[in-house]
């Protein structure tokens, strides 16, 4: 593992340990009160969800057309993190929405596209796990098509929902852009980088095991 890994993990753990204190001391948002504080974890999760998705898609395309194995490992690692951070965003979101909007779930364009993007990443992980030989190409194809699919999902859901107006008014979400918020963003980015590196390491070691078996034969 690279030299920066251990100190960075310590910093990341400390940041996460401190973050609840900072969030607790942050000023209350005026209209939504306490529940708005979910956003300190919800928004960074959603951003990382998106970033991990882009990493996975780009790495898959590069693997597909250049045959670079390290890109495949990167894509595989990123896909699992899409599932993880997507789950964080999709679970914390409704807990906030229950209070802010009065319902758990809205078929709003952002929520629906996130859910469908998340489903593609779950499919990716399932294919990698159960696809057997050749599943690397299969998963890369899925990631490529999944990327191309994002604008279509967005347009179709957006138009579908615009034609059928929502019954309840969804208030525009106010953002509390304070120090604790950016602190959490940094903590999440750090967490993502560390987990990605760790997950890539796992794939590298697996490849090493295969090499060793071949050498033993």
């Amino acid at each position: 593992m690279p030299k920066w890994f251990t100190p960075a993990s310590v910093i990341c753990a400390l940041m996460f340990a401190v973050s609840p204190l900072l969030i607790a001391n942050a000023p209350f948002e005026s209209t939504m009160g306490l529940v708005q504080k979910i956003s300190y974890y919800h928004m960074p999760s959603a951003w990382i969800f998106l970033i991990a998705g882009i990493v996975c898609g780009v790495a898959s395309i590069r693997y597909l057309f250049q045959g670079n194995l390290s890109q495949d490992r990167l894509a595989q690692a990123a896909a699992e993190l899409v599932v993880l951070f997507g789950a964080l965003a999709i679970v914390t979101g409704p807990l906030w929405a229950r209070k802010a909007w009065g319902v758990w779930w809205q078929w709003d364009v952002r929520l629906t596209s996130s859910l469908m993007g998340w489903m593609v990443s779950v499919a990716y992980v399932l294919v990698r796990k159960y696809g057997g030989p050749g599943s690397d190409k299969l998963a890369a194809g899925l990631a490529l098509f999944g990327m191309a699919n994002v604008p279509f999902i967005y347009i179709s859901v957006n138009y579908w929902r615009t034609i059928h107006p929502k019954t309840s008014v969804v208030p525009k979400l106010p953002l509390q852009m304070g120090i604790p918020f950016w602190f959490c963003v940094v903590a999440f980015v750090l967490l993502f980088t560390l987990l990605l590196r760790l997950r890539v390491r796992l794939e590298e070691q697996r490849a090493r095991v295969d090499e060793l078996y071949l050498a033993l034969d």
Binding site: P20, V35, I38, Y41, H42, V91, T92, L95, W96, R98
Partner: peptide, 17 residues
């Protein structure tokens, strides 16, 4: 009520990670 939503949210993030 807000705390009842807030605590599960934070707990879920921590536990999942």
């Amino acid at each position: 009520p807000a705390a009842n939503l807030l605590i599960p949210a934070y707990a879920f993030v921590w536990i999942a990670v």
